[in-house]
């Protein structure tokens, strides 16, 4: 499942762009590949990231995946609900399972992202 209006990376992160705030999560494809999520290691608020930096780690009982930052920016909020309910990433990857919000510091970094149509094509090729 791919949601229109969001932007995507080849590592299966999604980004929701609202002004200079970007909400980040992982796609439905990614959560299916991971299996049941047991833990999410969230970034620290205020920490600065460049696009492609390791932003967070999502674990299942037998795997761990790095989540890469889709844009360049500073973390302004993390989804602390994931600390007690990491499975929200499986249940609602595009809504309640968001990982963090960033304030974009380099608008150019957004340009590299795929739109939903491009991401869908990318998935079809996998």
């Amino acid at each position: 499942m791919v949601v229109d209006g969001l932007f995507y990376t080849k590592q299966h992160e999604w980004a929701k762009i609202e002004g200079d705030t970007v909400t980040v999560g992982i796609t439905d494809y990614a959560q299916q590949m991971l299996g049941e999520v047991t833990f999410a290691e969230l970034p620290a608020v205020d920490k600065q990231f460049e696009a492609h930096d390791e932003l967070a780690v999502v674990e299942s009982s037998k795997s761990a995946s790095d989540i890469y930052c889709p844009v360049t920016g500073d973390v302004i909020e993390v989804n602390s609900a994931l600390n007690s309910e990491p499975e929200l990433i499986n249940r609602s990857c595009y809504e309640q399972g968001w990982i963090c919000k960033l304030k974009v510091t380099d608008a150019k970094s957004i340009e590299e992202l795929m739109n939903s149509k491009q991401y869908e094509e990318f998935l079809n090729e996998l």
Binding site: T38, S61, K62, S63
Partner: peptide
């Protein structure tokens, strides 16, 4: 065996 996602056979260099 639990919390295996910390370990080398899964996390390798990390």
């Amino acid at each position: 065996l639990t919390l295996q996602a910390r370990e080398q056979h899964i996390r390798r260099a990390k």
